[in-house]
Amino acid sequence: MLKFLCSALVALTLATPAFSINPGEMFEDPAQEARAREIGRQLRCMVCQNQSIFDSNAGLANDLRVLVRERMLEGDTDDEVLSYVADRYGDYVLLEPTKSAKNAILWLTPAGALIFGLLGFALYIRQRKEPQAVEALTDADRAAAKHLLKQRDSKP
């Protein structure tokens, strides 16, 4: 049952973990494995730039992956696993920030930006009154303009 854990621990002690996922740590049941990866994609490898732990080969990422699978074996739901990891390592490991008060600005931005933009768009369109008429050019003006525009033709 815990075979994969043992081999994962062995892999941890090796100097160069080769891969983001070692076959040894994987679940044999594909459905469970898929679930593990889905959870893993929401956790950040703490020493990388925004890579998830399933995309990183750093030792710490490996550590977290093993922890995720361990929690799954304990029977945790996805959310329980995530909050367990976040409790131990801080919100920093969650690739998707929590929807809490401190992240209010972050989560309100998309809707805010969209509403603000569309409102601005609507107001802009509205406040522009159709001009009474295009400042009517007199025939003389038009002739003068046409002359200016044709000027090049007269030149060699």
Binding site: R41, Q42, R44, N50, S52, G90, D91, Y92, V93, L94, L95, E96, P97, T98, K102, N103, L106
Partner: peptide, 10 residues
């Protein structure tokens, strides 16, 4: 001083 991550899911 809080450290959070904004990643692909967001």
């Amino acid at each position: 001083g809080d450290k959070i991550t904004v990643g692909a899911p967001y």
